[in-house]
Design a protein around this nucleic acid. Sequence first.
RNA 1: GCGGAUGUGGCGUAAUUGGUAGCCGCGCUAGACUUAGGAUCUAGUGCCGUAAGGCGUGGGGGUUCGAGUCCCUUCAUCCGCACCA
Length: 935
Amino acid sequence: MRSERKKQAFFIENTMEYTFKEIETKWQKYWLENKTYQVEVDTAKPKFYVLDMFPYPSGAGLHVGHPLGYIASDIYSRYKTLQGFNVLHPMGYDAYGLPAEQYAIQTGQHPAVTTEKNIKRYKEQLDKIGFSYDWNREIRTCNPDYYKWTQWAFIQMFNHYFDNNTEKAEPITSLIEEFEINGTSNINAACTELLSFTAKDWKNYSEKEQQLTLLNYRLAYLAETMVNWCPELGTVLANDEVKEGLSVRGGFPVEQKKMRQWSLRVSAYAKRLLDGLNNLEWTESLKEIQKNWIGRSVGAEVNFEIQNSEQKMEIFTTRPDTIFGVTFMVLAPESELVQSITTPDCKEKIETYIEATKKRTERERLADVKTISGEFTGAYAIHPFTGEKIPVWISDYVLAGYGTGAIMAVPAHDSRDYAFAKHFDLPIIQVVSGGDISEESYDAKEGNSMNSDFLNGLDVKHAIEKANEEIEARGLGKQKINYRLRDAIFSRQRYWGEPFPVYFKDEIPYVLEENQLPLELPEIDKYLPTESGEPPLGRATNWKTVDGYPLELNTMPGFAGSSAYYLRYMDPQNNSALVSKEANEYWQDVDLYIGGTEHATGHLIYSRFWNKFLYDINEVCKDEPFKKLINQGMIQGRSNFVYRIKNSNKYVSYGLRKDYETTPIHVDVNIVKNDILDTVAFKEWRPEFRDADFILEDGKYHCGWVVEKMSKSMFNVVNPDVIVDEYGADTLRLYEMFLGPLEAHKPWDTNGIDGVYKFLKKLWRLFHNEENKFYISNSEPTKEELKVLHKTIKKIQDDIERFSFNTAISAFMICVNELNSLKCNNKQVLEELLILLAPFAPHIAEELWAKAGNTASITKTKFPEFQQRFIQEDTHEYPVSFNGKMRFKLNLSLNLSKEEIEQAALNCEQAQKWLDGKNPKKVIVVPKKIINIVV
RNA sequence: GCGGAUGUGGCGUAAUUGGUAGCCGCGCUAGACUUAGGAUCUAGUGCCGUAAGGCGUGGGGGUUCGAGUCCCUUCAUCCGCACCA
């Protein structure tokens, strides 16, 4: 795109000194041939595990935003290696997923083929950047050797249940034993539905009944549940895959549907998932997102009797102190109780209401929160304390899936109940002092109980305690902690995913034996559902066990393969275990995990759950997988615009556009440099611009710009290998880090890249004389040189340890500038500087290191040791302030006492002007910091 | 609505414990070298002002000898959650 002449000039100039292309190819080849980054278990060394969230290999390839986190983790890995740690730093691919399958549907191309092609492209792009990955450990989730262990884990979950007493997973066989002896009487297990049967009942159950009962307890279970059904994608989705009623992938509408689907009993681990967060070094915001998602609330479960009925209505409330303010009850429309308590005269209206609710999609329900709807069942509950009759309503503002699917409505102190009461003209009784009930509900947990019998006068906190005591004392209910976290829907009606190791006998699911794994994904003719509406696997011929039982037709969701991949890296070729005991006990857990915040409620919950389960069954030694986690910020796009004058093919430069009526048009950022348009390239860009005319400003066309999402349609996508071609990998690495703090979102703006490129050239020149001959001296370093070096060592070490890479780059620039002015070409100083720089810019560091006469790779050396004595000062340049405003500087010895400093400051010549003959009111002296004179 | 984060030159940013606001880089200005420059080097560059000096970290208030940093309040932007009882 650039004109030939310019390209050539660039090339010639580069071959003359810092030839990054040659250098980078050379060292990448060296690292590969010498297996520089291969690691093995080595008990003589401390371990350190640095992990990147592995990518989904999309067809678009990597853009410049992807490597940001990878570069940061690579710097940290290389640093830790230089510190003497045995660093595990692997990479792989999250290879199953929808895009490849959607593409397969359109083109007939097998998703495995597309995926393979995309992975190849990713690998090439990654390799050009010079990462220190141990590629021997590469994994792909779609590889049978890998997904064997995903299937294996599923089988383990199927064969375990969660015991609420031991708070861990236990074998389903011990549950069976218990059923045989005592039935359910001593059982306290996480389950879909609370069951009650005797040992005798159990023994009388048929095989089918027993198996159905066990599904109620298994951690991986098949059940009729409300699922998020996405018709457009033809599959169900987990809660984290739905946002505002739309699928996260594709943005298609999602509706609620009752279906028989596989789920993982993640909710059983809610407490442990929440408590576990406390010991993790994650950002507060990320922990907060997970806390909200898990959603713990403390309250009470209370039973209300129903008039003329044997049935009881169980509600959950966090405000038992307001129980005397109950004026009506509300059931979720889906609640089973609705059918049995509705009186005959209300039946019709209730049915109509339920039907209407069913028809609405999740999105519709969310969209009009304002519309209040509900219907009276005709039934009355009895207030447990007052004995009064309370009408029972149904409404879709009560959710079936949370708590007990029923509430006691206290309109005076809950805004939703208030709105409902106002709408249907139901009574409102204030039971907590404060607020104005005639205007709105008073939801705050402040004030004293009133109109509340034995609670009167107590503040909210004590009233809750007292109410709970009474509820328990009278056998009305018990205190309860509820969680918002739901079980994860685990089936997908799609092709490109892990097959379930499950077959059906008499419609009951059974799992395969471990030695039958992996159950490989079969070939099919089309990647579409069957004519009868079964998932794509329904097209597979002979999709059954050796005994002829049909195999499960669903496949596993995207998060299945990514839930334990960090364990597999520890021992990726193991054929007899997910990870050997030896490898797991050595590598333990991930010390540093870097990735995007978009996985906060998906992958990062599922893998914690998965890991905790494996911990329970003694497969891994750590309860939490990711000790420290950093979310790298998103790299946004920075779009450029040209301004077309209306009804013409003429384009006016940014500064002059106000004089014309113009339309801004996105222009490919790859033909713009420092916001100056390459007009020749622009004309060649697209046919309609071939005859474009320009109105220039001082001979140049200046473009406008704006920050927006990086996407093809905005022509602002920048590809890392374009940057590598033009500036080299080391420049790309440094520049991505120089852009700003790792965790901040920032636009990719190529404008500043010349700065870091110049820095590398300056560094190069430190090692070379005027004729570009390598030239360094063996003499003793000077005091100044050592001071610059050690100042830098300290700064770089501190910065790396707090992941402040942008300031580290700036420190390198300062160091090189200073050594440059000192005309330093001292071997000892320059070599230590190279080691500091090696984690950031490994290629140039290796090259200069080798040129300086070292035969081993710079990655095998030791990080320099900071020595305080080299930066020791005996004077300090004090800023002297008057009334807090800095006026001048004064160089004073550090040996002076406070009084001596004060005198020196007051008596110096410059001070007289500011004192203006007056006596200072006060003088503040902070040794080695500042002098402030108050006048 | 609830929760979290951010706000500093023309631009990206820095200031780790309350102690010189603007480091480093881009851009810009002037100069040197050069057939040439998108190379390199030198000097300058927060704003207003010829200067002395004044003003400056989204706005307002406070604590302090001293505030980008602490407290109160307010505005803007972004993100997360959202009938969760």
